[in-house]
Design a protein around this nucleic acid. Structure first.
Length: 626
DNA sequence: ACGGATAAGACC
DNA sequence: TGGTCTTAT
């Protein structure tokens, strides 16, 4: 998993910040009277008091553990306060915790690169900040170091009496090695950040400060709650020597068991006895190298600069007797799940200007008359189209195809024990180049005029712009096309008109045959299906969700199709290949646009293999891809 | 017959 | 690529 790469730079300052029993803190902030009491958060309390998903430290003293049921917890801790996770649409709703997590991230991301590792954990690369501090205000010159920093735990510091004095001495040692001084600076920064988090959100957290992610993560869990731990490199060897392999991230599962059972490796230190080649031959090249490295406290894994999730998903399980046995039941639950998902990706789009491109369905199921015992329900995905109804419709189709495959030829009675859908391939919506502006960005009129060297004014209101007859776009309200979003927020008739123009164009384009150029600029899908669905010109008819879905379909979801092509739905109209574009159409474009389009075609041919994909949206979402 | 709901990433 | 598997909280 982590990229096995030698630590090229042992001087990084990395912190791992972990919220203390996060869900509990969120609930305690909501209900301050719960503060200080043994508290746990449970979801669904109807069966055995619900399942615990977070436990306060007060409650842990009583032996209350995650993965207990509420009823069990009450037995060991009669006074425990059980708070339920909010329920919406018949399922647990974690949004309160997600947004609380965002509050924290927005504070923690201010001092260096920040990677959101989960809803309640982040990694920080504080190297630059620590270097700066060291050169400007090194700890040894500081007369009073942040009190919270002085409470740090420093691994390997000897002397049990008057710990804080020792720590202080460690912080201000002028003869310390550069690495340790950097860590000291990092620890001061982290202490400060934790203080900010507490002040701004009322949440406490714990942290680890080390030279890489692995060690930082290890350290953050060593002293909780509300404390921080520093790992000087001099302490690494002893730390790992006695550390059970299972404690190491990534070794908590089968790999860790295999190390113990097959190699007799019980502590990370035991790994030192094996050569890199030996480990590689047993566990594969990458994993082998990775193991060899972590045994030595080496990890080159970088802190990704990412504060937003890469996917959104929601799901529900239907245990035992609750298993779903009819398609009607499945569809009803899928509808609920899709509703939540739609809400969340819409919010993501509004807040972060990002668009999800794939919809994936997972399910677990079994057959009542079990012929093929362990056959799994296959997961299925397709291009994601925005709008609740669309998502529901597509999810339904995905389930059906999955179910048919699951059942095979003999149709058997089945039960579904879990359903989940997720939205992935989330990309920033482009906003930089002129072509981006042309089809969805800020100012359509100015984009076109700039590009074609005309001198139409930037803010020319309500003008229809002809572009070599291939494209007619109105642009009186720029935001209409920005991220395909304001359409839904604003139902003004002029907007309807605009959609109408686009759809009409799209239909015309289709009749003319391969009119890919319009797809470029409008993002409008020219398939018969969608063209026939296009709103009619005097559209005062539809209102509400239908209308919304419709408009979104015209703009947003078709954008999303450009990037992704599903295997199962190999509808050409969803496809958007550079090869399909008629070169003569490109010749008719304004010169600036020609250049960009050709650039895209070129890059799409060359970039078939890159992760970024080759859609025009990918291409134009960055500035530097000539 | 699962702790449940979510996420990320590697592998093929 | 999509789909599966692993790991984690």
């Amino acid at each position: 998993m982590p990229i096995p790469r030698p630590d090229l730079q042992g001087d990084r300052v990395i912190a791992h910040v972990d919220m203390d029993c996060f869900y509990v803190q969120v609930e305690q902030r909501k209900q301050p009277k719960l503060r200080g009491l043994p508290t746990a958060v449970v979801q669904y309390n109807d069966w055995k008091g619900g399942a615990l998903i977070a436990v306060s430290y007060e409650a842990r003293k009583f032996g209350v553990k995650r993965s207990m049921r509420g009823a069990e917890a009450e037995m060991v801790c009669p006074n425990i306060q059980l708070v339920q996770v909010p329920v919406a649409r018949g399922k647990a709703d974690l949004n309160a915790y997600r947004s609380a997590g965002s509050e924290v991230v927005s504070i923690l991301s201010t001092k260096g690169r920040c990677e959101r590792a989960s809803i309640d954990e982040v990694y920080l690369d504080l190297t630059d900040a620590a270097e700066s501090m060291l050169s400007e205000t090194p700890p040894e010159a500081l007369e009073d170091i942040d009190e919270e920093a002085l409470k740090s735990h420093v691994l390997g510091l000897i002397g049990d009496e008057d710990r804080e004095k020792n720590v202080q001495r460690w912080f201000i040692r002028s003869d310390a090695i550069h690495q340790d001084k950097l860590l000291a600076c990092g620890a001061i920064i982290v202490a400060h950040l934790r203080g900010e988090v507490l002040k701004e959100t009322e949440f406490t957290c714990s942290a680890g400060i080390a030279h890489n992610k692995m060690l930082a993560k290890l350290a953050s869990g060593m002293h909780k709650p509300a404390q921080q731990t520093i790992v000087p490199s001099s302490a690494v060897k002893d730390l790992l020597a006695s550390l059970p392999v299972k404690k190491m991230k990534q070794l908590g599962g089968k790999l860790g068991s295999s190390l113990q059972n097959d190699l007799g490796v019980n502590t990370v230190g035991d790994l030192l006895k094996f050569s890199e080649e030996k480990l590689q031959e047993r566990y594969g090249f990458n994993t082998g190298t990775w193991l060899w490295n972590i045994a030595r406290g080496i990890s080159g894994d970088e802190v990704k600069g990412r504060v937003l999730p890469k996917s959104h998903g929601c799901g529900k399980t239907f245990p035992g007797p609750r298993a779903l046995k009819t398609t009607a039941a499945v569809e009803s639950w899928l509808n609920q799940l899709c509703e939540e998902l739609s809400e969340r990706i819409q919010l993501d789009m509004d807040q972060n200007k990002r668009v999800a491109h794939t919809l994936t369905l997972h399910a677990r199921a079994f057959k009542t008359s079990d012929v093929e015992p362990h056959k799994k329900f296959p997961s299925k995905s397709c291009p994601l189209r925005y709008g609740i109804n669309k998502i529901q419709e597509d999810a339904k189709k995905l389930f059906d195809t999955g179910l048919r495959e699951f059942l095979g030829s003999h149709s058997n009675a089945w039960r579904v024990t879990s359903l989940s859908i997720s939205a992935g391939k989330i990309l920033d919506t482009p906003r930089t180049s002129s072509i981006s502006r042309l089809f969805q960005g800020k100012s359509l009129s100015s984009a076109i005029s700039d590009a074609s060297n005309d001198d139409i004014q930037d803010d020319a209101p309500s003008s229809s712009i002809g572009c070599k007859e291939n494209i007619v776009l109105e642009s009186d309200k720029d935001e209409v096309f920005a991220h395909g979003k304001s359409v839904k927020e604003d139902d003004a008739p002029s907007k309807d008109r605009k959609i109408d123009v686009l759809c009409t164009q799209s239909r015309k384009q289709k009749d003319k045959g391969n009119g890919s150029i319009l797809k470029f600029f409008s993002g409008i899908n020219t398939s018969a299906k969608h063209a026939s669905n296009a709103p009619s010109s005097g559209s005062e008819s539809h209102k509400g969700q239908d209308q919304r879905d419709h408009q979104e379909e015209c703009l947003v979801d078709d954008h999303s199709r450009l990037g992704t092509i599903s295997n199962q739905q190999r509808d050409d109209s969803w496809n958007f290949n550079a090869e399909d574009i008629d070169p003569s159409v490109i010749d008719e474009l304004p010169p600036e646009i020609q250049r960009e389009v050709r650039g895209w075609i070129c890059s799409s041919k060359r970039a078939k293999t890159t992760k970024r994909g080759s859609s025009i949206f990918h291409y134009f979402s960055t500035d530097d891809n000539a």
